[in-house]
Design a protein around this nucleic acid. Structure first.
Length: 297
DNA sequence: AAACAAACCTGTGCGC
DNA sequence: TGCGCACAGGTTTGTT
């Protein structure tokens, strides 16, 4: 569910409403949510601490604490962070509750809700990130948080035979892009998802760079994408509106609104649904690249 | 190196 | 109405 724009929207909510506040009490329900360490480690690591900031790298939320540790939250597929009035009825699958000390705006709790329990809450020592959270240490650049110029992008793509779709989803290469935005970005850049990354010409890299920044920037501005199941909501429980701007994701069979000529196709690559326009994304590989195609469904 | 498949879980929507 | 199956925004691990 949550990709870079959604996580960034949650981060902004934390920056506005949670940063500077102190955790009075910690409750951990399902231990699976804190499986990286333990229930006791999270309770001990958060009780009494003040949250100093709200940062983000890719899809990882990172909150430095006055204890010297950092709180990491990853929402994975179905995780939500919600700010609620203290004592409010908690939804099913509320696995972690941080009761904040009261401030001028009242008494609040921060809830981590996650039906599928893929998400995680970790308190770790940033000096030992390579040991305690190795995947965070191996994350690629974040297009918005770290900047990612055309030259760097070209070098990340160069020489690789991997398909563009798979490469955009690889968090070690570029951090933050998920299945929805990978499809929207490739469509905006008019690039076929199966095209080998290393086959891009300079102008293609420029198009991909432009599309990546434009799509992600606009999606953050719209508060992210909330699909029909209302799974993604921000800290205050509101949905985003970028789903109204999707051109291909979830539009299989529809006439392409970009070119008016093609039809949106849906296929599966690496177990992930992939959407592209049959016309404006038709050019995908020079003859010397051996074709390996996405199976159409 | 690259491409799968399976695994981790639960909820929802669809066809019959 | 009910049942069973396919599928879902992510990531890791193991196998070709």
């Amino acid at each position: 569910m949550p990709e870079l724009p959604e996580v960034e929207t949650v981060r902004r909510g934390l920056a506005d409403h949670v940063v500077g506040r102190t955790v009075a009490r910690v409750e951990v329900g399902r231990e699976r949510t804190v499986r990286r360490t333990s229930r006791q480690a999270v309770i001990d690591g958060l009780t009494g601490v003040t949250i100093l900031a709200a940062d983000r790298r890719g899809k990882y939320l990172l909150c430095p604490l006055d204890s010297g540790d950092t709180l990491m939250v990853h929402l994975r597929m179905t995780g939500q962070l919600l700010l609620a009035p203290a004592g409010a009825v908690r939804p099913p699958h509320t696995h972690v509750v941080l009761t904040l000390t009261p401030n001028a705006s009242g008494r609040h709790e921060l809830w981590f809700v996650d039906p599928r329990t893929f998400g995680e809450v970790v308190v770790f020592d940033p000096d030992h990130v390579a040991v305690e959270l190795p995947e965070l240490a191996h994350l690629g650049p974040d297009p918005l948080a770290d900047g990612l110029d055309v030259g760097v992008l070209g070098r990340l793509l160069g020489g690789r035979r991997t398909r563009l779709k798979a490469l955009l989803l690889d968090q070690h290469v570029i951090a933050g892009i998920g299945n929805i935005y990978a499809d929207e970005i490739l469509h905006a850049a008019r690039l076929h998802p199966d095209r080998p990354a290393g086959s891009l010409r300079r102008r293609d890299v420029v198009a991909l760079h432009d599309a990546m920044h434009r799509i992600l920037f606009n999606a953050v501005g719209a508060g992210g994408s909330t699909l029909g199941d209302n799974q993604y909501v921000d800290l205050m429980g509101s949905g985003g509106s970028y789903q109204d701007d999707h051109q291909v994701y979830g539009k299989a069979g529809a006439r392409c609104t970009t070119c008016g000529r093609g039809v949106v196709r849906r296929g599966v690559t690496g177990g992930r649904s992939t959407h592209w326009c049959s016309w404006c994304q038709r050019v995908w590989a020079p003859r010397h690249w051996k074709a390996a195609s996405t199976t159409e469904v």
